[in-house]
Design a protein around this nucleic acid. Structure first.
Length: 417
DNA sequence: TCTGGGGTCCTAGGACCC
DNA sequence: TCTGGGGTCCTAGGACCC
């Protein structure tokens, strides 16, 4: 079975900061989110103090300072750069690599000729030497198991192999069900109510029953735990299917003008990202809300979803719409704390297909009828138009197999008499 | 007083088609 | 004229991840 490695940077944001400020070594360090609101990374020393991930900083400030700790504002530019350098090093060892997140990569070690364990040791040391960052490596036949191996590596010497069934069984036996990758709060409760308390019990559960009770995601998880890979390595980084830009405000906003300014700048940034990946957006939604942590204050949440007739990457088109719809849903008299813009139904730019039709019926194998109705209502029965379909991030024809429920959308781009 | 930001995938169910 | 089954399209919402 092909060994799959998960390489994970330890306490990534904190480790990045430590590379450039060695004084931060061996003291409790946390990195804070936007406006220094939440703890988004912790050093081991900070974890030992009991500071949880995602905790509001003001609740832990005193404890941290009382222990000579440091809190830093996040520097995502730096973390992005460091992340790329780590990936560069890893590619030298294994070109078949998937960048899973800013601090994690999956590697397919099938082609590695030498001993896997010593190869991993070498990778770990090389990353440390060339970037200054400590990593942990877990190796197993599937992603789910290598994630587990990686967790175990963190408690050990930084490298853990989980290739044999005996080792896997041992590891899963003691693992509470919530410790598995893909089991969150909700599923933990669900599993326990069905008598599944450990990862091993989930692995041994009948496939059909799991699928029926929990759905395909968990059926796949069981297979992965049994050593059958169900999640492959995605080497190319694919286009985003949605692009979001949202922020919590440093101070509450009350006027339409301020809110418009914020949302328009978010929309503009989102459009930049859109053009970077060379896509057009078929629609977007905007939302804003008051501070949900202040039940003593009047609460208001508003959201508006807009489907565009013509996909675009033109900021001006989006901004105009944002302003119009914002006026519709704005209410005065509230203190707004957060707002955001999400672009969705993205289509690759310049990959529109061209179709000629005489009667709407002829389009049946290409277009959903609802779209045809819209087109014929507007243009009558004859004409030539271009249509684009957004299916996730890929360009797919009608005959391709998709999971049911995938969002599919056709948008007219242009009509020519 | 102070509580982040950005994603993915799947399911259910209505509308509509043949 | 009446009725039903199988299928697609699309949205809303839930669950999870880092």
């Amino acid at each position: 079975m092909a060994p799959l490695a998960l390489v994970d940077c330890n306490n990534f944001f904190v480790s990045c900061e430590r590379v450039f400020e060695p004084k931060l070594e061996r003291i409790p360090v946390v990195v804070l989110s936007n406006n220094d609101g939440c703890v988004v990374a912790r050093s081991n020393e900070a974890k030992m103090l009991g500071i949880p991930m995602g905790a509001p900083y003001f609740k832990w400030k005193a404890l941290l300072e009382g222990n000579n700790g440091r809190a830093l504002s996040a520097n995502f530019q730096l973390y992005g750069d460091m992340s790329q350098r780590v990936v560069q090093v890893l590619r030298e060892f294994c070109p078949e690599l998937e960048v899973y997140s800013i601090d994690e990569s999956f590697l397919n070690l099938a082609e590695v000729k030498e001993d896997i364990e010593s190869c991993c040791d070498k990778m770990k040391e090389t990353v440390k030497r060339w970037t200054g960052l400590p990593v942990s490596i877990g190796v197993a036949p599937t992603k789910t198991l290598s994630k587990l191996a990686n967790q175990m590596a963190k408690d050990q010497r930084g490298v853990k192999l989980l290739m044999s069934e005996e080792e896997q069984t041992e590891a899963l036996r003691e693992l509470p069900i919530e410790g598995l990758w893909g089991i969150g709060r909700r599923m933990g409760v669900n599993c326990r109510s069905q008598g599944i308390k450990t990862a091993l019990q989930l692995r041994e559960a009948p496939l059909g029953k799991v699928r029926k009770a929990f759905g395909v995601i968990y059926e796949r998880m069981v297979l992965e735990l049994r050593g059958t890979p169900c999640m492959s390595i995605h080497e190319v980084d694919e286009d985003k299917q949605t692009i979001t830009y949202s922020r919590t405000f440093g101070r509450p906003i009350e006027t339409l003008e301020e809110l418009s300014e914020a949302l328009c700048s978010y929309a503009a940034r989102a459009c930049e990202k859109l053009r970077e990946q060379n896509s057009c957006t078929g629609g977007f939604y905007i939302y804003f809300r008051t501070n949900k942590h202040r039940p003593d204050q009047a609460q208001y949440y508003a959201e508006k979803q807009i489907l565009l007739e013509v996909p675009t990457d033109d900021t001006r088109v989006i901004l105009k719409r944002v302003n119009n719809f914002l006026k519709e849903i704005f209410r005065a008299g509230y203190k707004f704390k957060k707002a955001g813009v999400t672009l969705y139904s993205l289509t690759p730019k310049g990959q529109q297909i061209e179709m000629e039709f005489e009667k709407p019926k002829q389009l049946h194998d290409k277009l959903p009828l609802s779209m045809i109705d819209k087109l014929s209502a507007r243009y009558g029965d004859r004409g030539l138009f271009f249509a684009a379909q957004g299916v996730g991030n890929a360009w797919k024809g009608r005959n391709e197999i998709r999971s049911p429920g995938y969002t599919t959308r056709w948008s007219e781009l242009k009509f020519v008499k």
